[in-house]
Amino acid sequence: MDLILWRHAEAAEAEPGQPDMQRALTGKGQKQARRMAEWLESQLPESCKVLVSPALRTLQTVEPLGRKFKVQAEIGPGADPRELLRTANWPNAREAVLIVGHQPTLGQVAALLMTGAPAYWEIKKAAAWWFVQREPGDPESLYLKAVMGPDLIVK
Rank of each mutant, 00 (worst) to 15 (best):
E10P: 01
A119I: 02
L51D: 03
A73C: 08
L3Q: 07
G137Q: 05
Q60K: 02
A55R: 08
Q133C: 11
L44I: 06
F131Y: 00
Q30R: 15
P19H: 00
I99H: 02
L112T: 09
K145Q: 15
P136I: 03
K125W: 13
H102G: 11
P104L: 08
E140C: 03
R35N: 02
P16R: 14
P104Q: 08
N89E: 07
T105H: 06
G27W: 12
A73T: 12
T58P: 07
L5T: 13
Q60M: 11
A128W: 00
E83W: 02
P150H: 09
A55Y: 05
L51V: 06
S42R: 12
A126M: 11
L152V: 02
A55G: 03
W121K: 10
L98R: 07
E83K: 00
R7P: 04
L112Q: 11
V100F: 06
D151R: 14
L85E: 02
G107N: 02
T61V: 13
W130V: 08
F131N: 04
K49I: 01
G137I: 06
D2C: 09
A24F: 05
K68L: 08
L113G: 07
Q108L: 04
M114E: 10
L144M: 14
A12E: 15
R134M: 11
L144S: 13
R82N: 02
L112N: 08
Q22H: 13
A128G: 02
G137L: 12
V71Q: 07
P136G: 05
Q72F: 01
E74W: 07
L106A: 04
G17H: 13
R23Y: 08
E41F: 12
Q43R: 13
L5G: 12
E15I: 05
L40I: 12
K49M: 03
Q30K: 15
G66T: 05
D80P: 07
P19D: 04
Q133V: 09
D2H: 14
G76P: 03
P45R: 10
A73G: 04
E83S: 05
I123P: 04
A73D: 12
R7V: 09
I153H: 00
